[in-house]
Design a protein around this nucleic acid. Structure first.
Length: 619
DNA sequence: TTAGGGTTAG
């Protein structure tokens, strides 16, 4: 319809169509392209710019468009003869805040003062907000202090400003001075505490809020998600519905991310059904969240289905899909998708994309392709290599036993290598039993955690150097380094069951143990021998077998076997890497009990079926 | 016609 109307404009009839043009400019369905066409036609009849109302409408349209900076150029070149009013400034400030332009903000701010709008609260609030989104808290504070009449919006913007660079003391002080804080003031504080990682303080404020709206619920849920408390996020999501708040697309994106982190496939599927029922538009946020949820729950097929159906994809969407394929063992497909991304002109690979691409190369064992992407493609796209990229590259070289080359890459890094990079090299040492290099790496790492000591210790154990095992054990004891306990979870009928290594606290522990003993007998019958090298310390063989038998994933799988129907896929999420023994055992379980078992470890997926694993024993 | 909430990697 708009297209037909546009065609009707002729030079002579612009005045005649002024109302139609203004209507189009104010319509939210007018696209940026149409807006530019209208502007171009108006330029052919400069007299049209004598209409102040039309000029302001054009500013309004540009401020709301995907190219807000056009508002400034239009104002500077075509509105010089007009006296700006409060609307003019309002729209220009909207454009400033969207484009986060400090320069424009300063310009408009000084004009508002010069033209006598300094005591206009509405406008100065907008100026204040612009400084806040530009990250200029000091300037924002100056505006705030110089405002003769402050209202709750002024306080809220200023609070938000302090919450943003992380100045919670200042935010809190101002919050306590706010004459009549509203739900927005409270929510801003919740978000502030969340952003500095203080979820407890955020929750405390949330509980004390006099009233809450959907945005406050969303803020608290995403606070949990972003601070890696997905279970609390899901609990709060239930509570929110119990209090009769209907989730919107924002809620759903956060909750899907929580499902992804915890591996809650059923809840994730329920949300998928819910958002279809509500006819939520699958925008890139929602689409990406869905893809990531399915991928992190180990169901790549459904992730691909969503990806294929999306109308609109941004780089996050592609990244989530590429990464999902890579971590689920579909390295080739991940790289194929990356090729498609390269020819899609609507997106551009970024640093996250290359994490996925290099991960695919490393998991798939594509040495040459990995080198090509790391040394050439990444740089072609102007991406500066991050430690994550180096870590993938070191991992890839390490797998091939090219430990010297891997070390060379680290020594020549343009940025400071962090523990993740050294740890990648350490993984290579483990695989190829290079004790000397491993010792050197551990001594050079700045922040060692228990996992690094455990790895070194296991390396000694695997070649029978029990004295050294004892030495490492003593270092850990002396320095008070605790081994991070393995923890695996499984979702059964919407309840998350967590098992810690050696844990006997589960109410059905006796049955689980019985099942594991039965398993032991069945495995012995097919010639299984426990790989006792991975047990951390030197204890006698029988004890070692006991310790191995109670690794957290075995407990979780045992529970899965007794609490789900035959042939049901068992899905486990683990906080650490899977050990060799558990890997062997899980392969056998998949064959003996005819079950598909999907284990998500700290880094990647293992899909076990018919006695084999998707990682091809290479992880 | 100004103020608070969302996705990917780590």
């Amino acid at each position: 319809m708009h297209h037909i109307q546009l065609k009707q404009f002729s030079l002579a009839s612009i005045q005649h169509h002024k109302q139609t043009i203004i209507h189009l400019l104010q319509s939210p369905s007018t696209t940026t392209k149409q807006l530019k066409q209208i502007h171009a036609q108006l330029l052919q009849s400069p007299s049209s710019f004598s209409s102040f109302f039309l000029c302001n409408s054009l500013l309004f349209a540009y401020a709301a468009s995907s190219t807000p900076t056009h508002a400034f150029s239009f104002f500077a070149t075509q509105m010089g003869h007009l006296h700006p009013n409060n609307f003019t400034f309002q729209f220009l400030l909207k454009a400033s805040s969207k484009s986060k332009s400090v320069f424009q903000t300063v310009q408009i701010h000084s004009m508002t003062l010069k033209l006598g709008f300094g005591s206009y609260t509405f406008l100065q609030n907008a100026v204040l907000h612009c400084y806040v989104v530009c990250g200029c808290v000091v300037d924002a504070r100056q505006v705030f202090d110089e405002m003769p009449h402050k209202d709750v919006v002024s306080f809220n913007s200023m609070i938000h400003g302090y919450c943003n660079s992380g100045e919670m003391d200042a935010a809190s002080r101002l919050f306590s001075q706010t004459p009549d804080p509203n739900v927005i003031s409270w929510t801003a504080m919740v978000v502030g505490y969340s952003s500095i990682g203080d979820v407890a303080a955020a929750r405390q404020l949330f509980d004390r809020m006099p009233d809450r709206d959907l945005v406050s619920w969303n803020a608290m849920i995403s606070s949990y998600v972003q601070n890696r408390h997905p279970i609390e996020a899901l609990n709060l999501f239930c509570q929110m519905q119990a209090e009769n708040f209907t989730p919107n697309p924002v809620t759903v994106s956060s909750v899907l991310s929580a499902c992804a982190n915890v591996g809650a496939l059923d809840t994730g599927k329920w949300i998928h059904v819910f958002l279809n029922k509500k006819h939520f538009r699958l925008d890139p946020f929602l689409g990406t969240a869905l893809i990531d949820m399915y991928a992190k729950c180990g169901v790549v097929e459904l992730a691909l289905e969503v990806f294929g159906r999306l109308q609109e994809r941004n780089s996050c969407t592609w990244n989530a899909m590429i990464n999902g394929l890579a971590t689920n063992g579909h390295a080739k497909q991940a790289l194929d998708l990356f090729s498609k991304m390269q020819v899609d002109r609507s997106v551009r690979p970024d640093e996250v994309t290359f994490v996925g691409v290099l991960l695919a190369c490393s998991h798939g064992g594509f040495l040459e392709e990995g080198k090509k992407h790391f040394y050439c493609t990444l740089r072609d796209y102007g991406v500066n290599p991050l430690v994550e990229h180096y870590a993938c590259m070191v991992d890839l070289l390490g797998r091939y036993g090219l430990l010297k080359e891997a070390e060379h890459v680290i020594r020549n890094m343009t940025i400071v290598p962090d523990v993740v990079v050294w740890r990648a090299l350490l993984g290579g040492c483990r695989l190829h039993k290079d004790v000397e290099l491993a010792e050197r790496v551990v001594s050079e790492m700045e922040a060692r955690d228990s996992g690094d000591y455990v790895l070194l210790s296991n390396l000694y154990a695997s070649i029978g150097r029990w004295d050294d095992v004892e030495k490492v054990r003593k270092i850990m004891k002396d320095q008070g380094i605790q081994k991070i306990p393995g923890c695996s979870s499984i979702v059964i009928e919407n309840t998350i069951h967590e098992f810690i290594s050696g844990d006997k606290s589960h109410p059905r522990y006796a049955e689980i143990n019985e099942k594991l003993e039965e398993l032991g007998r069945k495995m012995a019958a097919v010639g299984y021998l426990a790989e006792t090298g991975v047990v951390f310390y030197d204890i006698d063989e029988e004890e070692k077998e006991q310790a191995l038998g109670h690794h957290s994933e075995k407990l979780a799988i045992g529970f899965g076997l007794i609490s789900t129907a035959a042939a049901t896929t068992i899905r486990i999420v683990k906080n650490l890497r899977v050990c060799n023994d558990c890997h062997t055992v899980t392969k056998l379980i998949s064959k003996i009990y005819n079950r598909e078992i999907v284990v998500r470890d700290r880094v990647r997926f293992h899909h076990f079926k018919d006695g084999e694993c998707s990682c091809k024993d290479y992880w």
